[in-house]
Design a protein around this nucleic acid. Structure first.
Lengths: 345, 345
DNA sequence: GTGAAAGCGCTAACAA
DNA sequence: TTGTTAGCGCTTTCAC
């Protein structure tokens, strides 16, 4: 833990290059309108001195921070138990890096933390925010709106006043669910159950809707509410088996849930897919490929979602003069899903 | 994406409270030596105006950023496939939050990124760095050292010149491995194999050492080199079974590897633990509890490791006058592990 | 095309 | 205890 050596300033670079600070600044920031020889001398001085701009000083005048916040508002347990967030982070990180923008990670642990996040966002420390995993009753969107920070949401936000003007990136959860259930139906299955995700999240609600789109007015006993976890999947599967012993297929709201369901099925001596076919959602590789049997599932390109969230945000940030009305940037993006066939259905 | 409204400055707060900017500043920063009534007026003005300090301006003069970089230098695939990093991030985030410090996440994708990270760290944008997942030949430590940023490593760094003066937090990998192997021996197993992790990481090397500590001069055919992944675990298990069909126990370098090994064992019709007992490492809940049979494993407190890394770093940062020599803060911490018995051994 | 100078919002001497 | 003042390092008019 050595003390940082005093770093060279732009002043030093200018002196060394024999130019004014203003010129040095111009070169460092792209060098428009500076004649070649001068520019080169500055660049060389930068090189020799190992000059790196002081971001604080720069922000102070530009009011830009070249940093965006990533807010993950998920109760302790689920975050990262599931590789989901990690993959999104990857995608986000790649895109931000390509635009020389830093990623400030804000993890929240509960209600108290919301205020902290709100304060931080309102504090104008970042140029924008990427927000994940909102639940229906989440106070965060309100705080963020009040903070007035440009924001892109991960997953369609679910509050009642609709999604007008809100930017988000999501997978086509409903369409993917339809495809999954149609696939099961195409296999000749007629009593197809559904294990839902946490229904206070739109992804779960949309998948349920997709299921209903295909099966029509489903027997309510064919639907078991769950929470996206393996343990929840086990519980739901038992419930389904109890209420509707004859079922011959299950569409689970995600792969983790499906893995729990598979375990229960095996424990009960039911063969997959012969007795009960199972389809998951996500195509979370470490899960879907490792289950026994490997899981047929609906793939969503999670990393791409992250990348697009970042891109959408940065694009909005770039329009330095965001004239009301003259706004033709798409506010939201819904990505297609694809069915990946493995052995479970 | 609304434009941020102009934010109130300290000047505005001071004016409203009828004091000087200096006094307002004092109050905002803890309020030492400001008389009650004045302080209260300032606080009220802050409240009314919704004032939040401009961090850029503050950093410019204090040279502190109240931000720490977390560098995860892991090839795309493994990060977050494994909940490991997520858990550490949690721990880190909690500790940093408690100290009003922001977490800047730096994910690297390959060699080129190292330079970027080096530049960022050298750029003096953060007060310190928390660095993970170094491999033996990693250029990052060098870059970081040159950047002169206070750093704490996650996991014992492995470069040749020893760990003198380097701060790190690690689990007692060697001791944990010993305990695992002793447990197997205590079960009466005599032909205990080991599936290693990626041996260019000290955690893997240390676990192998621990294994050797107990079995003595092991038959080399009892050791299969692997890489911490489930697929690697499968490969290694097959290799072990081929080279040493009579083995009756396996200690795998982590739970993911163990899960791969279990799959191969099942596929070969070998019963666990009757024919072959298996012990993992990590106690990664979503993995260890979900395998069939559930995994006996060595638990390390990953979140706590993260928390301690952050604490170590912040403590070093707090010593505003880091006198050489007069340094009694512990440089590194090695956390104990505990054996968790489940059904696999 | 280039330089001089003002000033972003804040903290920290120093004076009062 | 409080206020005055200088200046952190940079970008950006505005003259030249």
């Amino acid at each position: 833990m050595t003390e940082t050596a005093p770093r060279p300033t732009l002043e030093a670079v200018a002196a060394r290059a024999g130019v004014s600070r203003a010129t040095a600044s111009r070169v460092v920031n792209g060098g428009d309108g500076v004649r070649r020889p001068l520019a080169e001398r500055v660049l060389q001085a930068v090189e020799e001195l190992g000059y790196v701009p002081n971001q604080a000083a720069r922000s102070l005048v530009t009011k830009r921070h070249d940093a965006v916040a990533v807010v993950i508002a998920e109760p302790e347990t689920r975050v990262f138990a599931d590789p989901f967030f990690g993959l999104q982070l990857r995608g986000i990180s790649k895109e931000l890096t390509a635009h020389d923008t830093q990623l400030v990670l804000l993890l929240t642990e509960g209600r108290d933390d919301h205020a902290r996040v709100g304060r931080y966002l309102a504090g104008g420390h970042v140029d924008g925010a990427l927000v994940f995993s909102l639940h229906l009753d989440d106070p965060l969107p309100g705080l963020i709106q009040r903070a007035g920070v440009p924001t892109v949401f991960g997953g369609r936000p679910g509050w009642s006043d609709g999604t007008h003007g809100i930017a988000y990136v999501d997978s086509d959860n409903r369409g993917g669910a339809r495809e999954a259930v149609r696939h099961l139906a195409g296999l000749g299955r007629t009593r197809i159950g559904h294990i839902t995700g946490a229904l206070d999240q739109t992804s779960a609600a949309d998948r349920l809707d997709g299921y209903r789109d295909v099966v029509g007015d489903a027997d309510p006993r064919l639907i078991a509410e769950s929470d996206f976890t393996p343990a929840g999947g086990e519980r739901a599967m038992r419930e389904l088996l109890e209420n509707r012993p004859g079922l011959d297929a299950v569409f689970a709201a995600n792969d983790l849930t499906a893995s729990g369901a598979l375990r229960v099925l095996r424990e009960r001596g039911l063969r997959v897919p012969e007795d009960v076919a199972v389809v998951g959602f996500d195509d979370m590789l470490p899960v879907a490929e490792q289950t026994d049997p490997p899981l047929t599932t609906v793939r969503q390109n999670i990393e791409e979602m992250g990348r697009l969230m970042a891109r959408l945000l940065l694009r909005g940030l770039d329009r330095d003069d965001p004239e009301e009305g003259a706004d033709d940037t798409p506010r939201s993006i819904v990505l297609p899903t694809t069915l990946v066939r493995r052995a479970s259905a």
